[in-house]
Simulated scan of single mutants.
Amino acid sequence: MNPSSPRHSGPIDEALLVVPVEQATSSDGSTKTLWRLHDGNQVESLSFTLGGDGSTAVPDERIATPVRDSRGHVVCVSSQAGCNVACRFCATGLQPMRRDLTAEEMVAQVRRTRVLEERTTPTRVIFAGMGEPLLNLEEVLRAVSLLESDPGVAHISVSTMGVLPALDTLTEQAPSVDLFLSLHATTDEVRTRLIPLNRANPIAELLRAAERFARAHGRVIDVSYLLFNGVNDDDADADRLIGLLDPRYFRVQLLLWNDVPGLPFSRVEEDVVERFRDRLVAGGLPTYIMPSKARDIDGGCGQMLTEAAKEHRVNRANKAMLPLV
């Protein structure tokens, strides 16, 4: 069980809830902020901009409501200090799990970022920083409720590895959010090696729950698929993905792995991800490639790390992926 969030009562000074300790700016314009919490724990968030004015929608005649693109200014927030999921490819999972964040601490990351960066246009928020949002679901739902009433917030998304039955609770209690489901493999054998959580949340059950979300809210779900050289990037994987995902409910977001020292993976070449995308599209599955952000400041997906990596977790990652890589 994760350490519980310290609940706050009475008026809260957001400037004290999360204090910026350090900021780093990437060559692509992204900004990573290291925040110190009131108890000394630390988390990171990332602020970046995607092309477009934030109002772009992708029309699709097969669903009632078009999927909404997270364009314009985006803040990627953390929901936990550390992470217990221990994905083999993720820097955050190499460090100790300290505690869940409160809703107020999550919201403060967004509002304080907007103040520090003097943002005037609405911000899109995605719960995709440190931690697994569905393992801190009560506080994440409270944060969503608070952010929905904030005029500075345009839209909210939740990115998850998939936790049951929490995913069904999200479906019931957060109808306004968009869902990103991190899949990263097309068989349970490979996914369990990459994501130990898969043992209790296998692919077929996750996709059924995700379809329930899509049908309930009339929006497609973005399936995040992180390509690893020699692990999940061949034509057979693409064909299995086409078979797994119903294009009425899913589209695919392809990601390239961001280097984490000591882990047994390598980044695929650009032509590999383009070939993979083209095969999915030819098979009728809507697919786009998400550009890596903030790699040069260790702010990309899977790179957030505020404490020394745990050696035993690095060793487990290497052992789990043999002989795949």
Rank of each mutant, 00 (worst) to 15 (best):
R62F: 04
A128Y: 03
K319Q: 13
E118H: 01
M130V: 11
L137N: 08
D296R: 12
A209S: 15
S157W: 04
G162M: 03
G302I: 01
H312E: 14
R295V: 12
E148D: 08
R275S: 14
V314D: 09
V107H: 01
D39I: 02
F228H: 00
T56N: 07
P59N: 04
M321E: 01
G52C: 00
A185V: 08
T187C: 13
L146W: 08
L263F: 06
A174W: 00
A200R: 13
W35M: 08
R114Q: 05
R114Y: 02
I203E: 05
D259C: 05
N41W: 06
M304C: 02
A236N: 13
T49A: 09
L17V: 10
L37R: 01
D271K: 12
V158S: 00
N198S: 14
A64T: 10
E270L: 14
L170Q: 06
H155P: 00
E105N: 07
T123Q: 01
N84S: 15
P286I: 13
R219M: 06
I195T: 07
S30Y: 02
V19G: 01
L244K: 11
V115Q: 11
Y288H: 15
M97E: 03
A185T: 05
F228P: 00
P323T: 10
F228N: 02
N229E: 15
A24G: 07
G300A: 15
E211D: 13
Q42L: 13
V75T: 03
D168I: 09
R199T: 14
V273W: 13
Y249V: 09
A200D: 12
S157D: 00
R193M: 13
E44R: 01
Q303S: 07
Y249G: 05
H38W: 09
G302S: 13
R191W: 06
E132S: 09
L37W: 00
S70K: 08
M1Y: 06
R199Y: 04
P286G: 08
E205G: 01
L183N: 04
R199N: 06
G51V: 10
D100H: 13
D222Q: 10
V260A: 04
Y288A: 08
A320V: 09
N84A: 14
L50R: 14
R295H: 10
I63N: 09
I297S: 06
S224V: 12
N315C: 12
R114K: 07
